[in-house]
Design a protein around this nucleic acid. Structure first.
Lengths: 214, 214
DNA sequence: ATTTTGATGATACGTTCGTATCAAAAACGC
DNA sequence: GCGTTTTTGATACGAACGTATCATCAAAAT
């Protein structure tokens, strides 16, 4: 048996090269040739692992989703264990806010794909609609938990509040990428709203364990 | 003197043809030839009025800004005269939420330009940064007025709240365009937050008439 | 060392793009 | 109807794109 190479790894290397181009110069600059150069491989190899460009775009989009999920998880973990409802909401939202180089890259790439999907809905058959939905339900669940433990006003509608928080964070992210304000200013606005929501007190106590992120 | 034609009008007709394409098929589908076809003129004429494509993109972006401003104004007016602080905030935010065909077209086009500007910042020299800023200051000012007249909690930070409302609206708009929810659901979430902000009571002196669907 | 798989190279096809260059025709105020 | 302006026509260029097709080279497991 001859040379063995992890095909999934190669595909990932090439796909992430595309994501790197998309984050800096946009998806329209991500031609097959440019991706090959960025990945340090030949054009022929890109064609070898992705028979068509649509395949490449879809594969890279999947990698982007994984990177985003990983960052959200890491951000939640960074706020201490075990996670409280507050740290889960806070960590999730601050993870997708472009405040550092990595989150800027992720959100810029996401924005590029978002525009592409708007023009060509066939690209995100179901990936685009379910992922934000999952995030929203995740937030709503923990908000409800926080309501039950008295950290959040129980009169609030949890799903509506969760949708509002996620939309707020996305909108703040857009304003940061658009150059309207910097990441710290956006983070300040987000924490202002979160602190108002969570009643100012650090709270948390020894509340019950929360559902798990996927 | 021979045939006289309003050059500004011609430029507008061509520019708006580009906006129409951008709203449905994205900016990458808006080639000079496609714009000419959409506008019902020859490619040569597009080149006559816009010497380069960048000129065309910039000109059309200006028209988009005018259309957006006009819609915001019309939406505010539709909420009754004279406008109250509440109707000004409500009208501004609902105007830029994709709830009907026109607002969907506007926000989709705006999203397409947003992605283009992210990849090519030279396109929106100052147009991109100042317009949302103006909107935000506009909202903050009327929020402060509402605070002084007791319709809004005076403990709130007006600029931060205004930035949050605008970001919330933009984020909700993105979720609508992305197919996560429909315009009515987004409008319900927005009004939920606005009603909480404005203390639930219709307030605003002689309570204004209900918003109108367009 | 042979065999199988991974990787490169060079190149080409057909399309579309932005842009440019000829020219001629059509419309309209005087 | 003259003359100026607007508009169209027919192409053409070079470049970049996605895709495809040759053949060859390198590497590693048996």
């Amino acid at each position: 048996m001859p040379k063995r190479v992890d095909h999934d790894l190669r595909r990932r290397q090439i796909g992430e090269a595309l994501l790197r181009i998309a984050s800096t110069r946009g998806l329209q600059a991500a031609s097959m040739r440019e991706v090959a150069t960025e990945a340090g491989v030949s054009l022929r190899l890109v064609q070898y692992y992705f028979h068509t460009k649509q395949e490449l775009l879809l594969g890279a989009l999947a990698y982007l989703g994984e990177q985003l999920s990983a960052r959200v998880e890491a951000h939640i973990r960074a706020l201490g264990m075990p996670p409280t409802p507050r740290s889960l909401v806070y960590g999730t939202l601050t993870a997708i806010l472009p405040t550092d180089a990595e989150s800027r890259r992720l959100t810029r790439t996401y924005a590029a794909y978002y525009a592409l999907v708007l023009a060509e809905p066939a690209l995100a058959a179901d990936h685009g609609a379910t992922y934000p939905d999952l995030l929203e339900r995740f937030l709503a669940g923990h908000l409800r938990t926080a309501q039950r433990s008295g950290q959040v006003d129980p009169d609030l509608d949890a799903p509506t509040t969760a949708a509002g928080l996620l939309a707020l964070t996305n909108g703040l992210g857009s304003s940061v990428l658009g150059g309207q304000r910097d990441g710290d200013a956006a983070l300040a606005i987000l924490t202002y709203h979160l602190d108002r929501l969570f009643g100012g007190s650090p709270g948390g106590s020894a509340a019950g364990p929360a559902p798990e992120a996927s």
